Amino acid sequence: MIFLSVLSELLAFTALGLIAAWGEVFPRWTPVLRGRRVSLSAAMIPAAAGAIILTVLWTTLAVQVASGATLQGNPLPSDFPTTALHGWRLGLFLATYAPLPLWGPLLGLLAIAYWRRRRIPALPTPVPEYPTA
């Protein structure tokens, strides 16, 4: 369980590379790759795969809970998720887990913004024309 928690945190941290400078050029402390550009596919393939997986995972779970049945069609317990949660614990549970279905689509939007920033060349800066006297 600890390994999976650490792994998921490390994978989530890589999403910061889509907005940070080290997502475009490997930092100096990277032994072999320092100073080289991060290839577009090396960033986009994991980001797109993560966005798809997270969207499917959390959307399926949200639909399952909203419908009151498991994927096999068995009904959820009548007091789900309040079996051990009530009061402030239930509020904390809902506040922390309710946004999870947004994680995949937001990662997808972040990946698209990264792709557009890296793929579309910068527009040249127009030179202002000054009237001659």
Results as ranks from 00 to 15, higher is better:
3 F>N: 00
3 F>M: 08
6 V>Y: 11
7 L>E: 00
10 L>R: 11
11 L>W: 10
12 A>H: 12
17 G>E: 09
17 G>F: 13
22 W>K: 09
23 G>S: 07
27 P>C: 08
27 P>Y: 06
29 W>D: 02
30 T>W: 05
31 P>A: 10
32 V>T: 12
33 L>Q: 01
37 R>W: 09
38 V>T: 00
38 V>F: 03
39 S>H: 06
50 G>I: 14
50 G>W: 14
51 A>S: 10
52 I>P: 00
52 I>T: 08
54 L>Q: 02
55 T>C: 04
56 V>L: 15
59 T>G: 11
61 L>H: 10
61 L>Y: 14
64 Q>S: 15
64 Q>C: 04
68 G>Q: 02
69 A>H: 15
69 A>M: 02
72 Q>S: 14
73 G>H: 02
77 P>A: 07
81 P>V: 13
85 L>P: 01
86 H>Y: 06
91 G>P: 00
91 G>Q: 13
92 L>W: 07
93 F>I: 04
94 L>W: 10
98 A>Q: 08
100 L>N: 10
105 P>C: 08
105 P>E: 14
105 P>K: 08
108 G>W: 05
108 G>M: 05
108 G>H: 03
109 L>C: 09
109 L>V: 10
109 L>P: 00
114 Y>F: 14
116 R>V: 09
116 R>T: 06
119 R>H: 14
123 L>Q: 15
126 P>I: 07
126 P>E: 04
128 P>H: 13
128 P>I: 08
128 P>T: 13
130 Y>T: 13
131 P>I: 04
131 P>E: 10
